[in-house]
Design a protein around this nucleic acid. Structure first.
Lengths: 126, 126
DNA sequence: TGTATTATTGCAATATTGTCGCAATAAATA
DNA sequence: TATTTATTGCGACAATATTGCAATAATACA
């Protein structure tokens, strides 16, 4: 399944890159300017996740958020960092803080999803 | 708002206590034997959370899971431990492993939700 | 450049999770 | 036993996310 370049895909990625944060489908749709179908945005996001371009975070509001994999290379495991969800500005930022845990070898670890929820430093000021 | 004892509430708590794991509304409904309305189960679970009897985990499947607060006293912060979600047996277990992270004081932390997803040690064997 | 292939998209429908209003029921108290 | 009101069941609803299908358009190739 070879990928094709489309304006839609580029627009979605561009929004995420310029925001620098993890965004939900709804937030992307608001920011993107052009009119793109909801289902299409989800499909674009899912494909980017499959390709390792984005990573997915599920916050404790039950929604999916997507962020550009900046440091997601073979050295630093993609999802093993904390995320901070601000309840005020409705954004999620990737924290540099890595997630450490030890688990018996009997367990097979596939994904790690860590979200701290509260008020971010920008919103806490005002 | 004084609480009242009902068979429904006791049955829900009993299921969670005997399982020893975190369960979703759906899983509770399957195990509980008696016929209880979906909305009622949610309301019972939410009330238990308000009262500090249960704690809520949101897994990366986007669903809410509920577990008895065994060590949730004033010494050990309730939600600051890891959870492991097994994709095979569809359960979530509370790990003894505490969650450590450092965050600038500018942030206000309200909740921590950490879920490791994979195959648990019991399912990995078979 | 023109054509064929098939990845991508839009639309509508659907599944799932969780909540809410309202009337009926039943637990606790006097 | 009678009263108060927390709890429950039912139905409706909201929101998120996915899927099937037909139409569109990006890519490769003649």
């Amino acid at each position: 399944m070879k990928r094709r370049n489309t304006a839609t895909k580029e627009a979605v990625l561009s929004v995420l890159q310029s925001s620098g944060k993890a965004m939900s489908q709804g937030a992307i749709e608001k920011k993107i300017g052009i009119d793109i179908n909801r289902a299409t945005i989800y499909r674009v996001l899912n494909r980017y996740c499959d390709d390792g371009v984005l990573h997915r975070i599920v916050a404790d509001d039950g929604r999916q958020y997507f962020a550009v994999c900046i440091k997601c290379d073979e050295h630093l495991k993609p999802l093993h960092h904390f995320h901070f969800r601000c309840e005020k500005c409705e954004t999620i930022e990737c924290l540099p803080e890595p997630v450490h845990f030890s688990l018996s070898n009997d367990y097979v670890v596939k994904r790690v999803n860590c979200v701290i929820t509260g008020i971010c430093k920008d919103c806490a000021k005002s």
